[in-house]
């Protein structure tokens, strides 16, 4: 049984290797902005958002895309995602981080 499980794992690994690696997009957060604050993505292209904070605990929330992450100091929050609908989708910090928190937002534009 153990051997079969091992073989299945190998097959799965081979299948994974054929997939193109998702594009990694670093996003840095700091009081009170995301950088970049505007992302242009292609419909159907898998990406991984790599979120970091330069100062305090932040949030990344794009409710229309169902994406959410806590961004903790010293850690990278990875958000894998494949856009499946075109349009402009807002994202914002949803962890109250100071006097400019309300303005801390950005947009993801998905082109078909």
């Amino acid at each position: 049984m153990k051997r079969r499980a091992f073989l299945a794992l190998l097959v799965a690994s081979a299948a994974w290797a054929d997939e193109p690696a998702p594009r990694v997009i670093p996003i840095s957060a700091r009081k009170f902005e995301f950088s970049p604050a505007e992302l242009e993505l292609k419909l159907g292209e898998p990406v991984v958002l790599e979120l970091t904070t330069e100062d305090v605990h932040m949030g990344f929330d794009a409710p229309a895309l169902g994406l959410h992450a806590d961004i903790l100091p010293g850690r990278v929050a990875r958000v894998p995602f494949t856009p499946d609908k075109p349009g402009s989708f807002e994202f914002a910090c949803d962890v109250f981080c100071g006097s400019g928190h309300e303005e801390m937002s950005g947009v993801i534009k998905v082109r078909s």
Binding site: D61, P63, A92, C93, D94, H101, E102
Partner: peptide, 12 residues
Amino acid sequence: FPLYPQWDWATR
């Protein structure tokens, strides 16, 4: 209730 989470008008 999630009134408008895009503006943080919600409770997690």
